[in-house]
Every structure is written in C-alpha cells, then in structure tokens.
C-alpha cells in the first residue's frame, strides 16, 4: 500500500494545476480514503488562491520616462556588454579566470623572451655589453679620435635609452681616447 508521502508530488501537481488526468484519478482515489491529505490539498489550494489574488502593483507614472532617461545617459563599455548581465558569482569566476590567464601569459612571455627593457641598472652593469654594442678597435693616432667617437655614437645610439649602461661605456671610451 502506498503511503501519503508517495502522493506529495501529485498533490503539488494538482495544486499547481499541472496534473494529468491519470494523475488526478490516482490522487482522487487516495483522497477519498485519506482525510489528512484531502485537508492538505484544500489548504494548499487556498494558499494558492490567496497568493494569486494579490493585486498587481504598478510603478508610478513618472517612472518609465525617468528610467529611459537614465538608460540614454548610460555609457556602455565593451566590458559591460560582455559581463553586465552576469550574476556576481559568475562575474567573480570570469574575473578570476581572466586574472589567471593574464598571469600565465605574462609568465610564459618572460620565460620565452627573457628580460625585457625594464631590467634593473645593477644587472646591466654586471652584464658584459652585447656583441653589437662592443666599442670599435682603439684608433692608432690621436687625430682619429673624433672619427672614432662619431662611430661610437652611431654604434651606441641605442644606449641613449639606457643611461646606466651608457655611463659605464663612457668610462671605457674615455680610457680608449687617452
């Protein structure tokens, strides 16, 4: 014999108005014998009538124009277009995934290309000058110094962007020109 618990789902379906004919027939057979379930159905149907009977509320008459004025004033960024409708939990997850991706890409780029232009001064001073930046051979005569220095400036034009390194080289060049 089926217990009252078995009929809970059918009671719910009947109250919601979604029970099929077969379900209703099965339920009515039980309700005819079980006053407790029959009472529950009546009370739940009464609850539903009370809730569905609540009056429909409407916003004030000036609401819609004011709301649309704010919509027109709203600037929509690409970020908002992508994430604006997400609920906070989803948003946080998306932001976290994005952050992890950025960190991974950053680490990967550093691993692939080594140090970028923003390396520290101390590292440059310790490091030997790259081959293409090595000073030309020392001139044999003093009159060649001007030409030599011009050549140095051409070769080391890039050093303007790295003052620390240029300082170290300048000391070296000065010793050559002596």
């Amino acid at each position: 014999m089926k217990t009252c618990n078995h009929y809970k789902l059918l009671i719910g379906a009947r109250v919601d108005g979604t029970a099929t004919e077969a379900e209703l027939a099965e339920l009515h057979g039980h309700l005819a014998e079980c006053t407790r379930c029959a009472g529950e159905v009546r009370e739940l149907e009464r609850v539903r009538r009370l809730v569905t009977g609540l009056p429909r509320l409407r916003p004030s008459s000036g609401f819609m124009p004011a709301a649309m004025a704010r919509v027109r004033a709203q600037r929509v960024s690409w970020f908002d277009r992508l994430f604006g409708g997400m609920q906070p939990a989803e948003f946080r997850l998306a932001a976290m995934v994005a952050l992890v991706l950025v960190v991974c890409i950053g680490v990967g780029m550093v691993a692939l290309h080594g140090h970028g232009p923003g390396v520290s001064t101390s590292a440059v001073v310790v490091k030997a000058p790259p081959p293409h930046m090595a000073p030309p051979a020392r001139p044999a005569v003093a009159s060649a110094n001007d030409e030599y220095l011009r050549e140095c400036r051409l070769v080391h034009g890039a050093l303007d962007q790295d003052r620390a390194f240029w300082g170290a080289e300048a000391v070296q060049l000065a010793s050559y020109s002596r």
């Binding site: 609540l54 429909r56 509320l57 409407r58 916003p59 004030s60 609401f63 004011a66 709301a67 704010r70 919509v71 709203q74 929509v76 908002d80 277009r81 992508l82 994430f83 604006g84 409708g85 997400m86």
Partner: peptide, 30 residues
Amino acid sequence: NYLARMVGDPADAEDLTQDVILRAHRAIGS
C-alpha cells in the same frame, strides 16, 4: 510587480526595477 513582491517594498522596487533596466541595457550585447 515581481520585484515589489520579492522585496515587499514599492519604493525599493522602483529602484531595483531601474537597476534591472540599466543592467539589461549594459548587457544586451551578451
């Protein structure tokens, strides 16, 4: 009507409805 019944306060419901409209406008592309 939905928001008013959810939060139980008509004045709050107007603010929240406004929020829904603005958020929908921001996210309509998605």
